[in-house]
Deep mutational scan, measured.
Amino acid sequence: KRRTSFTPQALEILNAHFEKNTHPSGQEMTEIAEKLNYDREVVRVWFCNKRQALK
């Protein structure tokens, strides 16, 4: 499976959402994914990886 390359704009939006809520609901992740035109699973993994990076 290929790595997803996030655009700077997408990272800005993802980081803004992460600052508000580090554990978004499934519905929220779906909405973010649709807004950014990414697969929901990609957004889920991004949040998971971001949380791990802060440990």
Rank of each mutant, 00 (worst) to 15 (best):
K35H: 06
F18R: 01
A10S: 05
A53H: 13
W46M: 01
N49M: 07
E34C: 15
K50C: 02
K1G: 15
F18P: 00
E28G: 02
V45P: 02
W46S: 00
L11Q: 03
K20L: 08
T4R: 06
P8A: 13
K55D: 02
R51N: 10
F18K: 00
R51Y: 09
A16S: 08
K50A: 09
I13Q: 08
V42T: 13
E41F: 01
N15Q: 05
L11S: 05
R2A: 14
H17M: 12
G26V: 15
L54E: 08
E28V: 09
N21I: 04
N49H: 07
N37W: 03
R51H: 04
A10C: 08
V42N: 10
Q52N: 13
Y38R: 12
H23E: 15
E19Y: 06
N21R: 05
V42S: 14
R2H: 08
L54W: 04
W46I: 01
P8K: 08
F6V: 13
V43C: 05
K55N: 07
N49F: 05
A33M: 03
R51K: 12
A33H: 01
L14G: 00
F18G: 01
Q9W: 07
Q9H: 11
N15F: 02
N15P: 04
D39W: 02
N49D: 08
D39Q: 08
K1R: 05
R3W: 05
V42E: 13
T4H: 12
K35N: 05
Q27K: 15
D39P: 14
A10Q: 09
V45R: 13
I13A: 12
E31P: 03
F6E: 07
A16D: 15
L11C: 03
V45L: 13
Y38G: 06
W46Y: 14
E12M: 06
P24D: 01
G26Y: 05
G26D: 10
N49L: 05
I32N: 01
V43Y: 00
R44V: 14
Q9N: 08
E31I: 02
P8E: 10
C48E: 15
E28F: 07
L14F: 01
F6Q: 05
N15A: 05
E31M: 14
Q27L: 14
E28K: 10
L11K: 04
S25I: 04
I13Y: 13
E41N: 07
A16R: 10
A10K: 02
K35E: 08
L14V: 02
G26W: 15
S5A: 13
R2G: 11
T22C: 14
N21Q: 11
V42D: 12
I13G: 04
L11Y: 04
E19H: 09
S25G: 11
R3E: 14
F18D: 02
K50Y: 00
E34A: 13
A33W: 00
L14M: 04
A10V: 06
L54H: 08
L14H: 01
T4L: 11
D39S: 11
E19W: 08
V45Y: 02
K35C: 07
K50S: 06
E31Y: 03
L36W: 02
W46V: 00
L36I: 13
T30M: 15
R44W: 14
Q27P: 12
S5N: 10
F47I: 01
V45E: 07
V42P: 13
R40P: 12
Q52H: 13
E28N: 04
R44Y: 14
N15C: 10
L54G: 12
S5D: 11
N37D: 11
A10F: 02
A16Y: 08
P8C: 12
I32L: 08
G26A: 14
R2V: 14
N21Y: 04
E31G: 11
Q52E: 15
R3Y: 07
L11H: 03
N49P: 02
Q27M: 03
L14P: 01
F47L: 01
E28M: 02
K20I: 05
Y38P: 00
R51D: 03
R3D: 14
E19R: 11
K20E: 12
S5W: 09
A33N: 01
D39R: 08
I32H: 01
N49A: 11
F6K: 04
R51L: 13
L54P: 14
R3P: 13
E12W: 06
A16F: 09
N15H: 10
D39F: 02
S25E: 04
H23R: 13
A33R: 01
E34V: 07
L54V: 09
A53P: 03
P8T: 15
P8R: 08
K35Y: 10
A53G: 12
I32S: 00
S5V: 13
W46E: 00
V42G: 11
V43T: 02
K20A: 10
F6M: 11
L14T: 00
E31S: 15
R40K: 13
E19Q: 03
L11G: 03
F47H: 00
E31V: 07
E41K: 13
N49K: 13
L36V: 12
R40V: 12
K35F: 07
R51A: 09
E19I: 14
F18T: 00
L11V: 14
R51C: 04
L14C: 01
I13S: 05
R40Y: 10
R51F: 04
L36E: 01
S25F: 03
S5G: 14
C48T: 06
D39E: 06
Y38W: 10
K20D: 05
T30Q: 09
H17I: 12
T7Y: 02
A33C: 06
L14N: 00
F6Y: 07
R40A: 13
T4V: 09
D39L: 02
S25M: 04
E12H: 15
S5C: 11
R44D: 07
T30P: 02
E12S: 12
V43H: 00
S25L: 06
L14Q: 01
T7R: 04
I13V: 11
A53W: 10
H17K: 14
Q9G: 11
E41D: 09
T30L: 06
C48L: 15
I13N: 09
R3G: 11
Y38L: 13
K1T: 10
E34S: 11
E28Y: 09
N37V: 03
T22Q: 15
Q27V: 10
E31F: 02
Y38M: 13
N49S: 11
F6P: 14
T4F: 04
K35P: 01
V42M: 14
F18S: 02
C48D: 08
Q9V: 10
I32Q: 04
K50R: 13
T7N: 04
L54M: 09
R51Q: 12
Q27C: 10
K55Y: 04
Q9L: 05
A10T: 04
K55V: 04
D39Y: 03
P24Q: 01
S5H: 05
C48W: 13
K20Y: 06
R40G: 14
R44H: 06
W46T: 00
L11D: 02
V43F: 02
E34L: 12
R40Q: 09
P24K: 00
T7G: 12
A16K: 11
R2K: 06
E12G: 09
A53S: 13
N49E: 15
F18H: 02
N37C: 05
V42C: 07
T7Q: 08
R2E: 15
F6R: 03
I32V: 05
K35I: 07
F18L: 03
P24H: 01
A10N: 09
A10E: 14
E41I: 03
N21W: 02
S5P: 11
H17Q: 13
W46F: 03
Q52Y: 04
S25T: 13
L14Y: 01
V45N: 06
E41S: 08
V45F: 05
A16M: 13
